[in-house]
């Protein structure tokens, strides 16, 4: 296999997400983003990827990039969602900033440890109350499915000039018959 093919295979997820229109990546690590972050580190994205120190800083970095014409994706675990409430409401929402939040949904259906369940269970309702559209996907789904969900959220964000969210359900919390 040539090196080009190898790189292409290694970065299939990031490339699929970029093909949906995302041009800037930032966020805070979670075990659910192992593949995404490995690929981001391996890709030659130059200015298009930067680490954040906290989730609210990631939303601010993404907002700044959007003001320069980028289409940003912010990844975080649901346990860090509380850190972005002010950035979301008093920055991204009031300034009409389309960006996509990709949230690894620990605590989904209350099937996780207590400190994840306490924010994970109301997460989708909180986003809805803030009028942030949500799209669900499995965190272990194929790259095309994850990128497709992100593309759907990006189009909703741009149509509505406000943030939209992709909720990534960890494989170990999924059960047959889930919505």
């Amino acid at each position: 296999m040539s090196q080009t093919q190898e790189t292409a295979l290694e970065c299939a997820l990031v490339e699929a997400i970029a093909a949906q229109g995302i041009t800037f990546f930032t966020g805070v690590a979670d075990s659910g983003f192992k593949r995404l972050i490995t690929e981001l580190e391996a890709s030659e994205l130059d200015r298009r990827y930067v680490l954040a120190t906290r989730e609210d800083n990631a939303v601010a970095l993404a907002t700044g990039a959007q003001l320069a014409g980028q289409r940003p994706l912010v990844f975080m675990e649901s346990s860090g969602f509380g850190n972005i409430l002010d950035a979301l409401t008093s920055l991204a929402i009031v300034y009409d900033i389309p960006l996509v939040l990709f949230i690894a949904w620990a605590g989904y259906q209350g099937r996780d440890v207590p400190h994840h369940n306490s924010i994970g269970e109301p997460l989708e309702d909180i986003l809805r109350a803030l009028d942030v559209e949500t799209v669900r996907v499995g965190l272990e789904d194929p790259p095309e499915a994850i990128a497709g969900a992100i593309g759907t959220a990006l189009r909703a964000a741009e149509r509505r000039s406000r943030p939209a969210a992709v909720l990534g359900i960890p494989a170990n919390l999924r059960r047959e018959g889930d919505a």
Partner: peptide, 19 residues
């Protein structure tokens, strides 16, 4: 900025990457 106290440096830094 009208809100989001504390986020001005990261907001500006995100912009600076693309100008």
């Amino acid at each position: 900025m009208v809100g989001s106290m504390s986020l001005c440096p990261t907001l500006a830094a995100g912009f600076s990457r693309f100008t």
